[in-house]
């Protein structure tokens, strides 16, 4: 009986969502072309970047980027807080007799925040553990990091930019962490280092945004527009800062979710 009511409610909600969205998905009016025409003629001259998408999210619509960095900061700190300390404090008084208790062997697993590999190779199914993962990802890790930095710094001339380079750098950090052998201490996969890189990049972003005011161009204005012959230097700086922020933030998120046993 209850299941039937739930089914009827599901069908009613699906039908009402379809009714609301159908005109939106089916409308056929032509796409307004005024933005594209303006950008085709003046985009390169206004900001100095050949890649127009970089010129948009760092020049014309830079407040969206600022909001996105704030959302990333909030999401990363919220996730880490829920996963580790704050979550454990909340769960103190709850009766957890329903959950299977952690055995002693499981509790000894990954208490070290450097590596993904298990301490002393104690694993439930260590027949599947080969060295293939460590060798391949350990060698590919720096290559992917290099590619991420290339995308960040050349984002104004070819496809790439801050967000793209940042997420590829985060993938490189995951590779480095997967390929790490027990006992090797790589500072780039430690949670404290990534934490500080993200906070420093956010501070640099705020400083770079205020530097336009000193030269009389307003908030997030380009201070190099009239001074030097390369106004794209500001775009390169902003791309690098955003790439570092996104890369360190998402890398920290991944390492916190995979590398540490949550007790």
């Amino acid at each position: 009986m209850k299941q039937k009511a739930i089914n009827v409610l599901t069908i009613i909600s699906l039908a009402s969502v379809t009714l609301v969205l159908l005109p939106l998905f089916l409308e056929n009016s032509p796409w307004p072309l005024s933005a594209r025409n303006y950008l085709e003629l003046h985009g390169v001259g206004d900001s100095g970047a050949i890649n127009l998408v970089s010129a948009i999210y760092l020049g014309f619509r830079v407040f969206d980027t600022l909001g996105e960095t704030i959302v990333l900061l909030t999401a990363v700190s919220g996730t880490i807080g829920v996963l580790t300390r704050a979550g454990a404090v909340l769960a103190e008084g709850y009766d957890t007799s329903g959950t299977p208790a952690l055995t002693e062997q499981e509790k000894k697993v990954i208490m070290d925040d450097h590596t993904f590999t298990l301490a002393g190779e104690k694993r439930r199914s260590h027949a599947l553990r080969t060295h293939l993962l460590e060798v391949v990802t350990g060698v590919l890790g720096p290559v992917v990091l290099l590619f991420g930095f290339y995308l960040m710094l050349y984002g104004h001339l070819s496809p790439g930019g801050g967000f793209q380079g940042g997420v590829v750098t985060a993938s490189g950090i995951i590779f480095l962490a997967l390929g790490n052998r027990i006992g090797a201490k790589n500072p780039l996969i430690r949670a404290s280092v990534l934490d500080r890189i993200e906070a420093a990049a956010f501070l640099l972003l705020i400083l770079a945004s205020l530097s336009g005011i000193l030269m009389g161009r307003g908030f997030f204005g380009n201070p190099l527009q009239d001074v030097t012959a390369i106004p794209a230097g500001y775009i390169i700086l902003l791309n690098g800062i955003i790439g570092l922020k996104v890369g360190a933030g998402i890398g920290f998120l991944c390492i916190a979710m995979v590398g540490r046993e949550i007790s």
Binding site: A170, I174, L253, C254, M257, V258
Partner: peptide, 9 residues
Amino acid sequence: GVSTVVFIG
């Protein structure tokens, strides 16, 4: 990359 790793983690 990132989304798959987060889910599997």
